[in-house]
Design a protein around this nucleic acid. Structure first.
Lengths: 368, 368
DNA sequence: ATGAAAGCGCTAACAC
DNA sequence: GTGTTAGCGCTTTCAT
């Protein structure tokens, strides 16, 4: 039985493919493929003809088929802790934008800070045959990362363990910004400075707290145990933490928060309790999410450039994907943080002991 | 030359596929495929054996291959105006969550309110052979929608034109919520009530403004032309709009904003200018984004349930995808809006003319 | 510079 | 219940 050369249309649907283009342009499908992929060995004449036909037919290549045939899906994964957190939504956006410029699609996953969601996320990534994954959440068990590396998937972690093999790592230099914040507050005569942490089960939360502790030690400032309160990086957590601080016999005069959402909750609670920010209480956030600028008063915060982070992450992944195969140890990246002075810090009006008066009239609008 | 039955591994990479499983489980690849797809006609014994092998080999199906062979990509597209806008990031999240439950991946696109980005978005969708698209932005030219319908892609629009063929439509009932807001303000004795619109090139912005105008007319309240100011749905736009309002000889005592981000800008500016919200000026937002609750004072706003919107959109799309093929007219959906009373509205303390005193002491915390 | 042909990993008839 | 086989739409040698 001779093979028929009839195009079988399954389910009666009609799709333009390179076959159609090939026959109309009187060339082989190979030439069409080359043309569409900008392979240089195609003659000007054919190329022109092929492009014309393709446009006329309103042709769009089939990514699935392409991926299958070429072995490259041109997809990467991005796993974040919470897509609805402004900090991450900004990152997701820039990351995707960057990916797009490199002709990559990105599979987004928000774990909503629940570790249980990771396994399904990893599964999706693997089934879509992504070429690499960026992980921006601590709620990820070793097992899941192993599952990925086991399948040869290049990994870029945010604040992962120091010397990871099989994966690159982006480290945030919390200390640089937090030290600036601490010095700023001390310069404003604050003596009782509180710190509201993130969930301490996460490395990154611990790192921020430790950076604070270290900064205070450098300045020879005592820090009561009471003044370190655990939050959860949500406004609600911030409110609860402030409540706890409010019960103290000696209230802090300044609070440093592990992220801006926490600071948002703190300020909200202050408003409710009639506490004036920054006259009665100075507040500093962390992340510099877009809306921090629009709070009233505008939040003084530590900037962690979401744009730099997102771009660094994608580029790091690209490097690892296109780089040599296999077990090469990943690259380390470091991102600095910086204090952004706005309106929520003020000279401490109620110092406990008289210190020598310095000519620092106010913290507002002051260049650091 | 006899055909060899050797698995040719391209590029030297090793991937477990159903062939591998089949040979180890001593069945054909068809049976493996059936098992993995839970087709009931597989014997218990074989199924068990196959699952065991699959698990042991750490097998993950290849979605691309699946899509190609079956003709179903199990991917849908979601196009939103701005992923970094809290209103949309919430929607994106819930939409994706819902999609996941139905075993669908979602291709997210944020047009950043630029129409130019639509064409590339549409291109991506088409190349990924998505099964349907939800469009939640007005910045989309007819041409692009046509491109999609032309390719038989089911469409769900948010606030699209009324009687669209080839696409379903989710209509927001702006009037229900805006009328409540207007009545609330009038009940609080406000007479000069301003409205900051969204960009008036968009149907949805016009619709909100018109709902306001209509509500005021219903209440026999005059609305000066000066009191309708165009914003752009960003905090910056809100600030600019308030600036304009501030120049008026007769300031409004209440402002209704086309969205919460605008209200955020307004409140920020008020804080800067020493205008007390709500004593001097009542402010009402629209959308009820999560942070509106955490502003200080907490924003009174009109709720548009992001959860309902996202779920409705996805389910509508599912219906159109699985429904009959071709040119069936889509379904219309309607979503109500509702006033949420919080802390940014207050009895007007400076009424122009004495109206009869009613026993309404304050707008704060009041049930409407 | 172009074409023929062999798959990529899987699904879905169809046959038994 | 299970196996055989023909593709899905494309890329990519290998010849020519």
């Amino acid at each position: 039985v001779p093979a028929m050369r009839v195009r079988k249309q399954s389910r009666g649907e009609f799709t333009v493919g390179i076959r159609e283009i090939a026959s109309r342009a009187k060339v082989s499908i190979a030439t069409v493929s080359r043309t569409l992929n900008n392979v240089s060995t195609v003659s000007r004449k054919s190329a022109k003809r092929i492009w014309n036909v393709a446009n006329k037919l309103n042709y769009y290549p089939n990514n699935q088929a392409r991926a299958l045939a070429s072995g490259h899906s041109r997809m990467v994964g991005l796993i974040v802790a919470d897509l609805t957190d402004p900090f991450f939504s900004e990152i997701v956006h820039i990351f995707q934008e960057t990916a797009l410029q490199h002709n990559y699609e990105v599979l987004i996953t928000s774990t909503q800070r629940q570790e249980s969601r990771m396994s399904v996320a990893v599964q999706r990534m693997l089934e879509c045959k992504i070429e690499g994954v960026v992980v921006m959440t601590s709620q990820i068990a070793e097992v899941h990362l192993q599952e990925l590396t086991q399948h040869q998937v290049p990994l870029v972690l945010l604040g992962g363990p120091r010397n990871t093999s099989h994966s690159s790592n982006i480290q945030i230099d919390f200390l640089s910004g937090i030290r600036q914040a601490a010095q700023h507050l001390v310069a404003l005569r604050h003596e009782r400075i509180a710190f509201i942490t993130g969930p301490l089960v996460f490395q990154s939360s611990v790192a921020r707290r430790d950076a604070f502790l270290r900064s205070m030690r450098e300045l020879a400032m005592a820090v009561d145990r009471d003044l370190i309160v655990e939050g959860d990086h949500t406004p609600e957590g911030g409110e609860r933490a402030l409540e706890q601080l409010l019960k103290l016999v000696k209230m802090p005069t300044a609070i440093l928060c592990s992220n801006d959402m926490t600071a948002l909750g703190v300020m909200r609670k202050c408003f409710g309790e009639g506490i004036d920010v920054p006259q009665d209480l100075s507040v500093i956030g962390f992340d510099n999410i877009r809306i921090s600028e629009y709070m009233s008063p505008a939040l003084t915060t530590i900037d962690l450039s979401q744009e730099r982070l997102a771009k660094t992450a994608f580029l790091a992944l690209m490097k690892d994907i296109s780089g040599n195969v296999g077990n090469a140890l990943g690259t380390q990246y470091d991102l600095k943080t910086n204090l952004i002075l706005r309106e929520t810090t003020h000279l401490n009006l109620h110092p406990e002991k008289e210190t020598r008066k310095l000519a620092i009239p106010s913290g507002r609008g002051q260049k650091f």
